[in-house]
């Protein structure tokens, strides 16, 4: 920007560069290394990748951890469970979030700002406590059971907690703002004249929605879906608090392999596979985003 800053540029670039290499890239490389190491008892609980002994230099590398994971339906199922949880809740968030974002964006500016603040409040408040709120609500003695008994729909409290439906509910609830806010960001920039123009040219409201509004909010849909899908794949807290033993998820498996089984190589291999599995949806999202993110001016 300014010629005199040239010397300062050096640390301007390299401070964050170095930081990210050291604390982001190296750790990732490290779990890759551990994922192809042989596990053993001790501290650290894996054999060094390279060793020198009387027999000379030796590489103790193995693909065994990966083979182990992918030959055990237990792990494969947990991946699939996580992906299907992420997919289901992304779709639900979109279905619930789109109309809300649409109507908030189309409100009068005075009301819109108040509604926007009301959307941001849950976004800011503690994630953990919002999950906890559902734990309270879904209890056997919780308020939803009480209401259902009161209106006579059920006679005995039913167990709503500790199953994968509760997990989906919790995920949709906590991640909904992540879907609504980017959608809102695109819809609020939306030129309302385009809707009028489409109507004027003979398109009925439904056609206007499908042919004009939906394609123009696609970047918002993609951004929102990405913000929900990706973190939900690795989600640990919600399944732990609201879920039961009916379905196990990838995040919890890593946690347990590490903290409970203390099997670092397996945990690392799980994490590496998780990254690989996530790379595909991310690339798809990025391509869609790039394709439809034309300038709206």
């Amino acid at each position: 920007m300014i010629k005199n800053l040239k010397k300062q540029n050096v640390w301007f670039v390299f401070t964050p560069y170095l930081w990210l290499v050291l604390f982001f890239f190296v750790p990732l490389a490290l779990i890759f290394k551990i994922s192809i190491s042989v596990s053993e008892w001790g501290m650290p609980p894996y054999r060094d990748l390279f060793s020198f002994s009387e027999n000379g230099f030796k590489i103790n590398s193995t693909l065994g951890n990966y083979l182990f994971i992918f030959s055990d339906p237990f792990y494969i199922r947990s991946y699939l469970n996580s992906l299907s949880l992420a997919f289901t809740s992304t779709v639900l968030c979109l279905l619930i979030g789109y109309p809300i974002a649409f109507y908030v964006a189309k409100s009068k500016p005075s009301i819109r700002n108040i509604l926007l603040i009301m959307l941001i409040i849950p976004f800011w408040s503690s994630f953990l406590l919002r999950v906890y709120a559902w734990k309270v609500l879904l209890q056997g003695s919780g308020i939803i059971n009480s209401i259902l008994i009161h209106i006579g729909l059920i006679s005995e409290p039913i167990s709503m907690l500790h199953n994968h439906y509760a997990v989906i509910l919790g995920v949709v609830y906590t991640y909904l703002p992540f879907m609504i806010l980017p959608l809102y960001g695109y819809l609020v920039k939306f030129d309302l004249n385009l809707i009028d123009a489409s109507n004027d040219l003979g398109a009925k409201p439904l056609n206007t929605f499908v042919k004009v509004i939906l394609p123009l909010s696609l970047p918002g849909i993609v951004a929102g879906s990405m913000l929900v899908f990706i973190p939900v794949v690795g989600e640990y807290i919600i399944p732990e608090m609201l879920g039961g033993s009916d379905k196990l998820y990838f995040g919890k498996i890593i946690w347990d392999e590490f903290f409970v089984n203390r099997d670092w190589p397996i945990a690392s291999a799980l994490a590496m596979s998780g990254i690989v599995i996530l790379v595909f949806p991310i690339i798809i999202f990025q391509l869609m985003y790039a394709k439809y993110n034309f300038k709206n001016e």
Binding site: D191, L201, A203, V212, L216
Partner: peptide, 26 residues
């Protein structure tokens, strides 16, 4: 039909698709 002040052309469509937008509704 109306021609808008800022034209309100559909940014996701090309020139031809903009022009035939209304015809496709008939």
């Amino acid at each position: 039909n109306i021609m808008f002040q800022n034209y309100a052309l559909f940014p996701h469509l090309n020139v031809t698709n903009n022009i035939q937008f209304g015809l496709k509704e008939e």
